[in-house]
Design a protein around this nucleic acid. Structure first.
Length: 293
DNA sequence: GACCAGGTAGCAA
DNA sequence: TTGCTACATGGT
């Protein structure tokens, strides 16, 4: 077993694992106690994921981030949890806006994640009209049913299925697993990627709005899901997914940003949230509105 | 038993 | 282009 520690004080702005991994950004990590979204975990609770066949577990112990893995996971942990982001700087550079300040203040240490593209894409196809906890359940089910099991430290972990593995699933099977009308979307998108017709990672090389358009060619992917993949996987920090919560926030706090169409409203709120790191602001506001009493 | 959840596809005008 | 509507399912 490979292990390591990363001092949290060395990370600009610290790290809150709970808020980072249970704020509806990533559905590819799991809490060791199996109680995701049922209140904060006990101190020192492990979170695990499988990337490229390697199991990675992380937890915070006092002022260090500990990791254990089947491989030397230091670079991978830093990438997946975006530990190089200087949160202090991002918060300081954010627009002086009451709601934004409140959200940043309430959730110190929450970072954006950087999920693997295919798992992120399928996760957010599943997210349509679904509660965060159920999306997590669906993604876990897909991993258990179609992903490769990996043994580590006496336990079995399941990788999220590859495009090939998921493409053999049938619509009927996925409906049986509770995916509802998203079942054919998942199968068809997995087939597109498996067949080499397109790959979400290819959007990386495009300009932001072109990248969003590229992703919408996948079945079950509209502007909102595309923005989520750009933000939580492909490094487009300016992407502001317009979901129900953000639309409500626009209604109540930024009514002048409602420009009718998704593209125009998106541009307006992106500008209001400071442009470059607008997606960071979006994620804080989303989590803040969703979790406040 | 409505109502809602990190929406999208398909179709009409 | 824009504006409907159907679509599964489980929790409150």
């Amino acid at each position: 077993m490979a292990t390591g520690t990363i001092p949290i004080d060395d990370l600009g702005g610290g790290l809150d694992l709970y808020r980072t991994l249970e704020s509806g950004q990533s559905y590819l990590w799991r809490r060791a106690d199996g109680e995701m979204y049922r209140g904060g975990p006990a101190p020192g609770t492990w979170y695990s994921t499988v990337v490229d066949g390697e199991v990675i577990r992380v937890r915070t112990q006092g002022d260090v981030l500990e990791w254990e893995s089947t491989t030397d996971a230091d670079p991978l942990v830093r990438r997946l949890l975006r530990l190089e982001d200087d949160l202090e700087e991002i918060v300081a550079a954010a627009p002086d806006d009451p709601l934004l300040r409140e959200a940043y203040e309430a959730h110190r240490g929450m970072r954006l994640v950087q999920d693997p593209p295919f798992g992120c894409l399928i996760s957010f196809i599943c997210s349509a009209q679904m509660r965060v906890s159920r999306i997590h359940g669906m993604v876990s089910t897909l991993a258990r049913e179609y992903g490769t099991p990996v043994s580590f430290d006496g336990r079995t972990y399941y990788a999220f299925p590859t495009p090939d593995q998921l493409a053999v699933a049938t619509e009927a099977e996925l409906r049986e697993l509770g995916l509802g009308y998203r079942a054919p979307y998942v199968v068809r998108t997995a087939e597109m990627v498996a067949d080499g017709e397109a790959h979400p990672a290819e959007a990386r090389d495009l300009e932001y709005e072109a990248a969003r358009d590229y992703l919408t060619q996948f079945v079950g992917v509209g502007d909102k899901v595309a923005d989520c993949v750009l933000l939580f996987s492909l490094g487009f920090d300016e992407a502001v997914p317009l979901d129900t919560w953000i639309r409500t926030a626009i209604e109540e706090y930024y009514p002048d940003c409602d420009r009718g169409s998704y593209a125009d409203t998106s541009r307006a709120i992106r500008e209001r949230f400071g442009g470059e790191y607008a997606g960071y602001a979006q994620t804080y506001v989303f989590h803040h509105l969703r979790t406040r009493a």
